[in-house]
Every structure is written in structure tokens, then in C-alpha cells.
């Protein structure tokens, strides 16, 4: 693919910062701009500012609502600035035991699922990155085919029920353990490692396991970090798997807690309870707070992790 030549030169040691910076390189222009182009530049800046405003608005809106009082939200007066500022809603939500149980579940599911996914993805990617592995193409095809054809919802559901994963953590952390996209990114990375390293390791008498653990993995920190983030964010954000296979509210991740708030089948009725002003209004308050608390970790980490994601996506398209 077209990104091929751009990445090949650094594919051996992809430094996320450098890759990200590459995207930011402006087109060098030395000739004086025409008047038309100057007009365009102004319009362009306005359009892009508009894009940023539209992107940020929903975030600003939920933050404003989370600090607003019920009356103002209900009267349709809250958009960017909180009206009737208060932190009561935060207190109410944070006093809900179930919220914290579900929040902790999200953390546990994310950590366990990411660990399992990393072990399976790394070992498979490493093995299929060896060009002299006999049957390599078969093993690659076995994985890639699942990208284009999958069993579908019902057969998966039937299977998970049949093996007794329903209402256990395993229904969440195992079935999505290998993402083929991530697998191919890691494979591309391992393929680009210099062969001499492993040849030297072999001469020193290291077997495959120890070469992988002591030589290859320590040199792959960048790609491992990227993969961990890819998996962790996708598990943190997932809800449907839990929604489908878990019946016990104590097992829900926080996304399902939030989904139930939004769907009105609220688990927080007890929290909202007492208020005679009707459910919708209270819920929209509480929804905003729950949303803010759910996205907070990602927003806080985002500035630091963004470049890894960008480089990961680009690594994934190295040769496509």
C-alpha cells in the first residue's frame, strides 16, 4: 500500500513520537501565495475551528449538565455553562455502592482480558513472524479468515452458553482475546527485527522461549505498549458482551450500568429515589455524572496515549 515506503525506513524501531510527527509535517511552500489561496487559508482555519468546536461540544455539554441542577436541565437551559451549580449529583452517584462495584468490575475485566489477549496475541504473532516456520501461510490464513467471516451472534451465544461461561468473568475476558488487526501489527513488528539478534541468541544456546522472553520482548516495548493500549481501551469501552452474557448486576461493568441508566431500566432508581420531579430529569443529571466519571480515566490518559495509537494504526498498514 501507499504507506509502505513511508514506514519502511523506521519500521525496525518504530518510535511513536517520530511516526506521529511525520503526520504533522506541513507541505513546504516557498512560492508566494496567491490572493485566492490566502482567502482559502482563512476559511480553512475557520472550518477546522468549527470541527474542533463540534467535537468538543458534547463533552462540554455533559460536564455542564453534571454540575447543573435538575430544574435548569429540565427547562432546557443548560448547554455550555452549568446552571444552578452544585456537586450534589456527584455525591449521589458516588454514594451508590453498585456504581463502584461495577466500576471495579470494569477495571478487573480490562486487566484480565488485556493480559490474556496479550499472551495469545504475542505468542501467535511471534511464531507466524518466523519466515522459515513450516506451515506459516496456513497459520496466517487461519487467523486472517476470521476477519472476513465470523460465526455470527447466535452461534456465538449458543457456544458461550454451552461451555458455561454465562454469568462469569470468562464470558467477557476470553471470547475477544485475539484481534486479528493487532495480531498483524505485532507480526509486522517482529518481522522487521534484525535476524542477527536471534541468531546470536541461538549461538549462545538460548531456546525459542528464552529468546522471546529475554531478547525479543525487551526490544519490543513500544509495540507492546501500543497493543496493550489498543486492547485495554477496547475492553474498557465494551458493553455488549457483558450485556449479553451477564444477568447479575453485581457483575456488570460500568458501561452496562450506564447503558441501563440511559435505557431507563435504571439500577440507580434507589439513588434517584425520593425526588418527586420525575425520573427523566433526575436521570439526565445522573447520566451526565456517570458519563463524566466513566470517560475520565480515558480523557486523562488520552494526551499521553494518543501517539501510540497513531503509530499502531500506521504500523498496521505497513504493507497492506
Amino acid at each position: 500500500m501507499v504507506t509502505d515506503s513511508a514506514l519502511k525506513d523506521q519500521a525496525g524501531a518504530p518510535d511513536p513520537t517520530r511516526l506521529a510527527r511525520r503526520l504533522e509535517r506541513p507541505t513546504p511552500t516557498t512560492v508566494k501565495d496567491s490572493r485566492g489561496y490566502k482567502v482559502f487559508t482563512v476559511i480553512n482555519v475557520l472550518v477546522l475551528t468549527g470541527v474542533m468546536a463540534i467535537t468538543l461540544y458534547p463533552f462540554a455539554n455533559i460536564i455542564a449538565q453534571s454540575f447543573s441542577s435538575e430544574g435548569f436541565i429540565n427547562a432546557g437551559q443548560v448547554n455550555l455553562v452549568p446552571r444552578g451549580f452544585n456537586v450534589e449529583t456527584y455525591r449521589t452517584v458516588m454514594a451508590d455502592n453498585m456504581f463502584w462495584i461495577n466500576y471495579r468490575n470494569t477495571v478487573v475485566y480490562t486487566v484480565v482480558a488485556t493480559t490474556i489477549a496479550m499472551v495469545l496475541t504475542t505468542t501467535y504473532a511471534y511464531a507466524i513472524s518466523k519466515k522459515n516456520l513450516r506451515g506459516r501461510n496456513f497459520f496466517i490464513m487461519v487467523a486472517v479468515f476470521t476477519m472476513f467471516f465470523n460465526g455470527g451472534l447466535i452461534p456465538n451465544y449458543v457456544l458461550i452458553n454451552a461451555i458455561g461461561f454465562t454469568n462469569t468473568i470468562w464470558a467477557i475476558v476470553i471470547p475477544n482475546a485475539i484481534s486479528v488487526f493487532n495480531l498483524l501489527v505485532m507480526k509486522a513488528f517482529f518481522e522487521n527485527m534484525p535476524d542477527e539478534l536471534e541468531e546470536a541468541a541461538a549461538i549462545d544456546g538460548l531456546g525459542t522461549y528464552r529468546t522471546l522472553l529475554r531478547i525479543v520482548l525487551p526490544l519490543s516495548k513500544a509495540v507492546i505498549a501500543t497493543m496493550v493500549l489498543f486492547y485495554a481501551v477496547s475492553f474498557w469501552n465494551s458493553w455488549f458482551q457483558a450485556f449479553l452474557y451477564l444477568d447479575d448486576a453485581r457483575l456488570y461493568p460500568v458501561t452496562v450500568y450506564l447503558r441501563n441508566l440511559i435505557a431507563g431500566a435504571t439500577t440507580a432508581t434507589s439513588v434517584a429515589g425520593g425526588s418527586s420531579d420525575g425520573m427523566t430529569q433526575v436521570a439526565s443529571n445522573i447520566q451526565s455524572v456517570t458519563m463524566v466519571l466513566t470517560v475520565l480515566p480515558i480523557i486523562c490518559l488520552y494526551p499521553f496515549i494518543q501517539k501510540y495509537f497513531v503509530s499502531g494504526v500506521m504500523l498496521g498498514s505497513v504493507k497492506g
Binding site: 458534547p58 455539554n61 455533559i62 449538565q65 481501551v233 474498557w236 469501552n237 465494551s238 458493553w239 458501561t255 452496562v256 450506564l258 447503558r259 440511559i262 439526565s284 447520566q287 451526565s288 458519563m291 466513566t294 470517560v295 480515558i298 488520552y302 495509537f309
Partner: peptide, 13 residues
């Protein structure tokens, strides 16, 4: 990077 549930919540609001 936002969960679909968050996006849906924002849409509803």
C-alpha cells in the same frame, strides 16, 4: 476513544 455507550448517552442528551 469513547465507548459507544457514552456516544449514545451524548446523543440522547
Amino acid at each position: 476513544f469513547m465507548s459507544i455507550v457514552i456516544v449514545a448517552g451524548m446523543v440522547f442528551q
